[in-house]
């Protein structure tokens, strides 16, 4: 038991000495790992969020019928009447030109010059429609029916938006994945080099250790632990950053009317925990790989 404690104390001490000696390199490695694994975490959360949002829409897909801006009152009422009486439609909401202008006003809050070119009269009033059954085919056929009605300018189905969002999120995930692979490789290489420097700095000690019969694993362990420690620190910083970003983005979705569409892009707390654990673990793995390669390569016994 005292032997084990002695060893643990030895490894802790040696690892700490290494970390302290290379403080600037340590910070660089930790930050690189942090950025890399933060992207992994964000990618994971984006995946969860898009799955959640798309799943939710399966149960509440809506579509919007835009009327001609100068539609006659009778035509608008006729469309509304038909919608209300339609057996496949659950509820509808009429957006007047004034309401449409208000929505646009919010969207173009930073671009007043664009808003100036639009008048209330030029905007199309619309019906927002929630069908009874959220089924893609049905929505498409409903949309096709109403596209032909007099006074209808166009019909936008939620399906198109869902597809567009799905595509957008997919590319976002791929970009994030690619970037995180590049950064994880860079972090592993940085840690690899750091451990090489650390081993060079301690070559006399390593020589003596080999001389008196220390095993390879005993000599390597403090260096591998050092790499894992950097990875862990980077993982924790990255996970924290990803958490802060998640809160910020979700807050933004919640506050802004323009981004209201994205409100369903949220992650549950258990998904957040999973993503956080995966992020931290990823850091540890990157650190362990980089340092284990270095310790294996540069310890010539």
């Amino acid at each position: 038991m005292t032997g084990l404690l002695g060893r643990a104390a030895y490894f802790a001490r040696e690892t700490w000495i290494n970390v302290r000696r290379n403080l600037t390199l340590t910070v660089a490695a930790i930050l690189t790992v942090a950025v890399g694994v933060m992207l992994v975490g964000l990618g994971l959360m984006a995946r969860y969020a898009s799955t959640n949002a798309l799943g939710r829409w399966q149960g509440g897909v809506q579509f919007e019928i835009f009327l001609e801006p100068n539609v006659e009152g009778g035509q608008a009422d006729a469309v509304g009447e038909e919608l209300r009486n339609h057996p496949d439609i659950e509820r509808i909401q009429f957006i007047t030109q004034e309401q449409a202008y208000k929505l646009l006003e919010e969207m173009l809050v930073d671009e007043p010059e664009l808003l100036a070119e639009v008048s209330v009269e030029s905007l199309p009033p619309s019906y927002r429609v929630v069908p009874r059954v959220a089924e893609g085919e049905l929505i498409e056929s409903l949309a096709a029916q109403f596209r032909e009605r007099p006074g209808v300018y166009s019909v936008e189905t939620g399906r198109q938006q869902v597809d567009a969002i799905r595509e957008w999120f997919n590319s976002f995930r791929w970009i994030v994945l690619l970037m995180s692979i590049v950064l994880a490789t860079a972090s592993a290489m940085l840690i690899f080099n750091m451990i090489r420097v650390a081993m060079f700095a301690r070559r006399r000690e390593i020589e003596v250790m080999k001389l008196v019969g220390a095993t390879n694993s005993f000599i390597r362990l403090p260096f591998i632990l050092e790499g894992m420690l950097h990875g862990l620190a980077g993982g924790v910083v990255g996970a924290l950053a990803a958490g802060v970003l998640r809160n910020h983005v979700e807050g933004l979705f919640g506050r802004s009317e323009i981004l209201a569409f994205f409100r369903s892009f949220t992650v549950t707390s258990s998904q957040f925990t999973t993503a956080t654990i995966a992020t931290v673990l990823m850091g540890v793995v990157v650190g362990a790989l980089g340092s284990a390669f270095a310790a294996g390569k540069f310890l010539d016994v």
Partner: peptide, 10 residues
């Protein structure tokens, strides 16, 4: 050091 690195107890 010579004893520690071969895992001899404290």
């Amino acid at each position: 050091f010579a004893l520690e690195v071969i895992g001899r107890p404290r």
